[in-house]
Amino acid sequence: MEPAVKKGPADILYDEVWELARTIVDARKQIGALRPSKLKTKNVSAALLEMDEIVKATEEASNTIMDSAEIMSSADASDAGYSALVQENCSKIFEACVFQDLTGQRISKVMTTLELVDTHLQDLQDLLGPEFDEPDDGVDEREGDEALLNGPALTDEAISQDDIDALFD
């Protein structure tokens, strides 16, 4: 058995640098395994396209339904063709309501992408460790009127029309 060679400062520094380099290579491999480019270019881009289609479909359906409602409400009930006109426009409304099924399916796909993004973020958080994760303090940094713009509230956060009316009494 060969006697152990005592390492000098240069050897210790070399080992440290080598270990650091290996850690960096490992981290890059693990980050690469998360496939961020695939997530960005395929999943997220696809989800954005799905969202765009949802907006278009709901707008198209709303317009079709309103077109039919306007035609029926402005029609003369004493006209001979009134019954057929109502029947025809009711059919158009039923057809337009198919959007609900299609948008439901598109929303499911978007939710799958969001879950995937969530999983990847969790993996990244695990990889980096708690020392690189600055906790969210939950403070809304917007100020003034801007801070009031939140869009539709969740059911348990919103107040009802009756509650709103009470504020005007």
């Binding site: 009031l148 107040i159 504020l167 005007f168």
Partner: peptide
Amino acid sequence: AESKTENVVAAKQAGVNNYIVKPFNAAT
């Protein structure tokens, strides 16, 4: 669609005469 109390209060303070939350109907 802004339906939080702080929104209604801010609008009222700014001088709104009434406030309707979406979705709403003809009766409202």
